[in-house]
Amino acid sequence: MTALPAAPPTPTPPGVDIAISLEEVSRSYGSLKAVDGLSFTVKVGQIFALLGPNGAGKTTTVEMLEGYGKPDRGRIRVLGLDPVRDGRTLKQLTGLMLQQTALYQKIRVAEAIDLFCGYYTTPANPADLLNLVGLESHADHFFGDLSGGQKQRLSLALALAGKPRVAFLDEPTAAMDPQARLQTWEIIEKLRRDGVTILLTTHYMEEAQRLADHVAIIDHGKLIAFGTPEDLTASLSTDLITFTSPDGPALDDLKNLPHVVAAAKPRAGVYTLTTNDSLETVAALAAWRARTGATVERLTVSGATLEEVFLELTGQAVRE
């Protein structure tokens, strides 16, 4: 049992609108620096997305904010409190979704929501939570019998059991089909309207682009970009050319076209070229088509998305 703190923890002073702050936070596992001098702040009521390739330190960062581990160096505050020292107080004010959904296999959906609501002094209404995540018709099902997406929706409901002021969502839509993902985005947007501060990690750039007020991209435990999604995409001078081609041209051929930074094949028959001069690249593509007789259809040119920002900054695709 942890001893009571000597002085009562200080609540967020009025007028201070910082919900989460990290100052020069580092955490190592053996010789691996998982988080290396990370600093950022999240304002109250924001949705903040933490992006990074696998192993970048996202989960280590989130779990320190949740009080699962102390930083080796640096200072973390959530609602003005220290997540480890003031854990008892802070856990009443926060909710969380772990990356891996974890619950008793043989607990029923409604029982789990009731159980979790019972942990908090000012709980949400269990029936409302069930409706919010759309699991009313599964209230009597065992957790172990739910689909991956349903488990995550239940996990989201449990994160909200205490009517949190701050919610930490580690990959909240990872196992969901597109429809469930859309519903979850709407729930998260509703939480923002209710004034909840949300820190989420995600592999889905469209998720960050749609939801996030602020984005931090981290790699090797360091912050490499920080700003609104618009700031970040505007900072990039590249455009994206998308076209379809049933013949399956070699990516290497496409990569060698002038001004192409990267070439990718997101789906069979669909190609994307990241270019820093779209006009020159399109012209070269037309010449290449005339020369080789390849098919190039439905060509579009669009401005950079977070996906390209991510690619440029980390040198790798988000999902590999």
Partner: peptide, 13 residues
């Protein structure tokens, strides 16, 4: 199964 970890993230001592 990380159930102990998940419950450790709630106010339940």
């Amino acid at each position: 199964a990380k159930i102990l970890k998940r419950l450790g993230g709630t106010p339940l001592p």
